Lab assay of single mutants.
Amino acid sequence: KQVQVGDEKYTFDTPEEARKFAEKVAKEKNLKVTEKNGNFHVE
């Protein structure tokens, strides 16, 4: 599963790991997490 933050992409083995990372980054940057096709976008 992938997490996209701006132009950066991070790959994780499980959706749970990806979601945790996305939520942590979103909180730090005051952004929101959206899920698209099983991948997460922080925007």
Rank of each mutant, 00 (worst) to 15 (best):
V33L: 10
N37H: 06
G38H: 03
Q2S: 14
F40T: 06
L31V: 08
Q2Y: 15
K27R: 11
E43N: 09
E23Q: 04
K20D: 14
G38Q: 02
Y10M: 05
N30Y: 06
N30Q: 09
D13L: 08
E23V: 00
E43T: 12
F12A: 02
E43I: 13
H41V: 15
L31W: 12
N30D: 10
A18R: 01
V42I: 09
L31P: 02
T34G: 06
K29S: 09
G6E: 07
V3E: 01
V25E: 06
V25Y: 07
E17S: 07
H41Y: 15
E16M: 06
A26G: 07
N39T: 11
Q4I: 15
K29I: 05
V33E: 03
V3Y: 00
A22Q: 04
K9P: 03
D7Y: 09
K29E: 10
K1S: 15
V25M: 12
N30P: 02
V25G: 00
A22F: 04
V5F: 10
A18F: 00
T11Y: 15
N37D: 14
Y10L: 05
K1F: 15
A18V: 00
E28W: 00
D7I: 06
T14V: 02
K1D: 03
V33H: 03
Q2A: 11
K32P: 08
E35S: 08
K32V: 14
F40S: 04
V42D: 05
D7A: 09
K24Q: 13
T11I: 13
K27I: 11
K9W: 15
N39K: 08
E17V: 01
Y10S: 01
N30E: 08
K32G: 09
R19F: 08
E35T: 11
T11W: 15
D13I: 05
G6T: 02
V3W: 00
N37K: 06
V3I: 03
Q2L: 13
Q2R: 10
P15R: 13
E8M: 13
V25N: 01
K29Y: 07
P15E: 15
H41D: 08
T34K: 09
K9N: 11
F12V: 00
T14W: 02
N39M: 13
V3K: 01
E35C: 14
E17F: 01
N30R: 09
V42T: 05
E8R: 13
T14L: 04
N30G: 15
D13P: 10
T34R: 10
K9Q: 12
K29N: 13
Q2M: 14
T34D: 06
A18P: 00
P15S: 13
F21D: 05
K9V: 15
F12I: 00
P15L: 14
K1V: 15
Q2K: 09
N30L: 07
N37M: 05
G6R: 05
D7V: 07
T34S: 10
E43Q: 09
Q2V: 15
E43H: 10
V33R: 01
A18W: 00
V5G: 02
Q2C: 15
K32Y: 07
G38C: 10
D7H: 10
L31Q: 09
K36M: 12
E17K: 05
E16Y: 03
F12Q: 01
P15T: 14
A22M: 03
E17A: 10
E28K: 06
N37V: 00
V25W: 02
E17W: 01
N37L: 07
G6H: 07
V5R: 02
E8W: 11
P15A: 14
V33D: 03
N37G: 09
V5A: 03
E43F: 10
E16G: 07
T11E: 11
K36W: 08
E16C: 12
P15H: 14
